[in-house]
Design a protein around this nucleic acid. Sequence first.
DNA 1: GTTTGTAGTTAGTAAAAACTAACTATATTT
DNA 2: AAATATAGTTAGTTTTTACTAACTACAAAC
Lengths: 138, 138
Amino acid sequence: MEKLINIISGLSTLIGNTEEEAKEQFNLFQLTSHQMHYLESIHLLDNPNITELALQLRLSKPTVKVAIDKLIEKEYVYKIRSDEDRRSAHLHLTEKGKLINQMHEYAHKRIAESILRKLNNDELETLEDLLTKVLVDK
Amino acid sequence: MEKLINIISGLSTLIGNTEEEAKEQFNLFQLTSHQMHYLESIHLLDNPNITELALQLRLSKPTVKVAIDKLIEKEYVYKIRSDEDRRSAHLHLTEKGKLINQMHEYAHKRIAESILRKLNNDELETLEDLLTKVLVDK
DNA sequence: GTTTGTAGTTAGTAAAAACTAACTATATTT
DNA sequence: AAATATAGTTAGTTTTTACTAACTACAAAC
């Protein structure tokens, strides 16, 4: 158990550091960590409305509204008014906003490359099988 | 490569979610995510002075000083004046401040437990060996 | 069709988080 | 020992982030 925890701790650090490095390149795009979190949540919740986003982030609706207005002005987000309920509007990421996800993909790719460098084909296949088993639900 | 990237993405999500859940329990201790980041950086830099911490966080010294003052008042951090250079002071985490690291340990332990539930002994040993190989430097 | 409820917005405000400029105290260089 | 540099601090200010209360517009329930 102790050994496994240490390995997970190392893995967590590796992933954390790689994502952090990837994020640094993105900070050049003038986004605060809060704003990044908004974009990530919009992606995660799959185009929520303001109310849903506020609930997820545990912030008041006006707070979220003001923050989203800024992200709309900076062209990371846009709104589409719902046809079913015309009071409501769904939030979408623009192409620029989607870069936030590409950032994560980039970090994951870099980790994959470092693994490929360290394992041979058999080892890679075994690792993939075991981790798949670990990640499967239930 | 594609498969490996997906697995890493899943792993990253698992670790991220587990840490997030662990953090929620800690939010009850009245710390903002910024303040948690300060505590994590102090741990990471191994008792830095204000200047070093400001450099790491890419913030001005007065900004960091004011933030640290609050953490000192709340008893998460204390200062020890350096004997070598009496202008300088090193930042340390109090027992309460160290809980932030225990939070990470708790999250890692929970992930370890979920792995133990899904693999048998042989599989576990193989996984540990492969991940150790992956995490080794160079 | 009137009342009640909900999504989003606006206005006003408070607290947190950041900055620059200027200072004190100690160290280092010349 | 005087001049320069560095660590930390203080003061004053701006920006960001958050809140509540009150509003508009639309939807649902009675």
